[in-house]
Amino acid sequence: MQKTNKERKKISRDDLVAGLMLTPAIVFLIVCSIYPFIWIFRYICYDYNGFTATFTGTRNITRMLGDKTFWNSVGHTFEYAAYKLIFIIPLSLLMAVLLNMRMRGASLFRGMYFMPTIISTSISGMIFAFIFATQNGIANSILQGMGIIDSPIKWLMSRDWVMVTVTIMAIWGGLGNYMLYFTTGMNGLSEDVYESAKIDGANGVQTFFRITLPMLAPVLKVVLMLAITSAFKDYEAIMVLSKGGPGNRSMVMFLYIYNLIFGSTDSTSQAQIGYGALLSIMAALIVGTVTIIYNIVAKKLDDVV
C-alpha cells in the first residue's frame, strides 16, 4: 500500500514535469490559436473598424444573408476548387508515378516540378499577369505561333476565361507539392508486390490500377482532403493576378473576406472586422462541411471496397 502511494507521488511529480514542459506550448496555443478564435466570435455582432466597435445585434447576419457578392464568391470558390482538384490530383499522381520509374534525371525533374511551391504566390501572380497579358503576352504569342488561335485570348479581361487562367496558375503552383506527397507514399510500397506482378506478366497500366492505386488509397485520401481544404482557402494568387475580377468573376470567398477585414484606401467604406469575422465563420463552416462530407463518402467507399 505504501509502495503504491510512493508510485502515485512519483507519477504526480512526473506529471508536474510534463505539465511544466507543456506550459509554453499550451500558452502559445491559447494566445495564438484559441484566443483569436474566441475573439472572432466576440465581434460578429459588432461593426468594428479596428478602433471603435458599435453593437448592431443581428444586423451582420441579415446583411450576410442578402450579400449577393459573398454568395456569388462562395459559388466561385466551389467552381475554382472543382477545376483545381479535377486536374491537379490526377496530374500530380501521374507525375509521381512517372518520376518514380527510376528514369534518368528524375530527381532533377522532381526538383523542377516542386520549385513553384517555394516561390511566393504574389510573385508568381505577377509573373502570370505578364504571361497571360492579352497584348504582348507569352501565352497568346505561343498559341498564335502554333496556329491554335487566330486572335489573342483575353485571359484576364474576359469573364469567360479568367477562371481558366487562375486554375492554370493554381495547378502550376500546387502540382509539385501533391506530387511529393504521392512520391513519399509510393516509396512506402513494398517492392515485392511489384516484382510478383512483373513475374505474373502485368503491364504498366495493370500495375498502376491493380497495385499502385489501391495501395496508395490511404495516402490519396489524406492528399485529397488537404487539396480540398487548401483549394477552398486559396486567394493570394488570385488577389495579385485578377483582384477577383473581371466583374467579380474570380472573386473567391476568402478574397472577399480579406477585402472586408483589411479595407481599401480607395474605398468609401471602412475596414469591417465584425462583418468579416462573421463571413469567415461561415466560410469555415462551408469548408468544414465539405471536408466532413468528403470523409463520410471516403469511408463509405472504403467499406464498399
Binding site: 461593426d47 446583411r63 442578402g66 450579400d67 449577393k68 457578392t69 459573398f70 469573364r159 473581371p246 466583374g247 467579380n248 468573376r249 481599401s264 480607395d266 474605398s267 468609401t268 467604406s269 471602412q270 469591417q272 462583418y275
Partner: peptide, 24 residues
C-alpha cells in the same frame, strides 16, 4: 468627406467600372 459607412458588397468604383465594362 461623405459619411464613412459599413457597406455590404462592392464599392461604387468597382460597380461603376463593371458597368463601363458592360459586366452589369
Amino acid at each position: 468627406q461623405p459619411p464613412v459607412i459599413n457597406l455590404t458588397g462592392d464599392d461604387y468604383r468597382v460597380v461603376l467600372w463593371n458597368a463601363v465594362m458592360d459586366y452589369v
